[in-house]
């Protein structure tokens, strides 16, 4: 039986552990902070499994591999299969046409169609991507831990770097690993009893695009900024203003919502914003998930397992 030590208990490391374990490998997980929490960027994710919408700006491989995410996650955690609704303010209607041109799988909606999907929303035109899904990232991480625990795997606290470990090592440390570019993201969670959404809603805007992901219990996650900056620290006032103004434009009733939580962290990324499995001898680096942590962790894990167990080189695999 193959033995693998994984460093990093974020979504990349944990999903790789799950994939390898279910395919018969013996797995250990190390993380300097232990179980997932606010110290890792997976904690702040949106949890949209939206390969079609991401295709509007991402490379085609993101869409192609992202399509396996919803099914893979369904083995582990509740996944809501209700698609994605995309809308634009009246004066930005041309953004909808452009978004439709650059994606596949969209259905055009009029006011009636939007109201049928989301009765609390009042917008005239939109796009619907019925094949997409979403999950709650923190629930998903906890369910991943439970799945691993049922296989006898727990996260051990350790700061040992990959070079000092013996055997096959998967380095999934995200920004802690060398050579990654940080792309700052900031998010907000609000709670309102007035508006219920049942699926992610994206508001297209040339300057301040917004997505809203329902988290249950009246909570809505608003995300997310994307700044070419590796500065850490709490959400900036400007970002908070932009996110909340966009939410207000989506529906003025959101002005009455409670501000529950804000967060900010760095997305680890390579220059092409595509994640990689990089093999250097006995060390495999799984990194660069950028804004596609939950969307692409299953494909990244599968390709890492294919490489280790079956010597199959998938398209995310790079040899050093």
């Amino acid at each position: 039986m193959i033995e693998v030590t994984i460093i990093g208990a974020g979504v990349a490391g944990l999903f790789a552990a799950h994939e390898l374990a279910r395919r018969g490998a013996q797995v250990r997980i190390l993380d300097r902070n232990g179980a997932p929490g606010p110290h890792g960027c997976s904690w702040w994710a949106g949890g949209m499994l939206a390969p079609e919408c991401e295709g509007a700006t991402a490379e085609p491989v993101i869409t192609r591999l992202g399509r396996e995410a919803a099914e893979a996650w369904s083995r582990i955690t509740p996944v809501t299969h209700r698609g994605t609704l995309v809308i634009a303010l009246q004066r930005d209607r041309s953004e909808l046409d452009r978004f439709a041109r650059r994606t596949t799988g969209a259905r055009r909606l009029d006011a009636q169609g939007i109201a049928t999907l989301e009765p609390d929303l009042d917008h005239r035109e939109g796009l619907f991507f019925p094949s997409e899904a979403h999950l709650d990232p923190r629930v998903a991480l906890s369910d991943l831990l439970a799945d691993l625990s049922s296989r006898g795997i727990t996260v051990e606290r350790s700061q040992t770097p990959p070079e000092n470990l013996s055997g096959i090592v998967i380095d999934a440390r995200g920004m802690e690993a060398p050579g990654l570019r940080g792309v700052r993201g900031e998010m907000v969670v609000i709670r309102t009893p007035e508006i219920t959404l049942t699926r992610p809603v994206r508001l297209l805007h040339p300057r301040h695009p917004l997505y809203v992901v329902p988290r249950g219990d009246g909570r809505l996650m608003l995300g997310a900024t994307q700044l070419e900056s590796a500065a850490r620290g709490a959400i900036r006032v400007r970002s908070l203003l932009e996110l909340l103004s966009a939410a207000y434009a989506l529906d003025p009733r959101l002005a009455e919502a409670e501000l529950v939580e804000t967060g900010a962290d760095l997305r680890p990324a390579y220059p092409d914003n595509i994640p990689r499995v990089t093999r250097t001898g006995r060390i495999l680096r799984l990194n660069g998930l950028f804004r596609h942590g939950f969307l692409l962790a299953p494909a990244l894990a599968r390709q890492a397992a294919d490489l280790l167990l079956n010597d199959i080189k998938g398209e995310l695999v790079h040899e050093d």
């Binding site: 570019r181 700052r184 700044l227 900056s229 590796a230």
Partner: peptide
């Protein structure tokens, strides 16, 4: 103003 982080990665590019 907007992207002035201490991020070396983007500046290197």
């Amino acid at each position: 103003r907007r992207e002035g982080g201490r991020g070396q990665g983007f500046w290197d590019i």
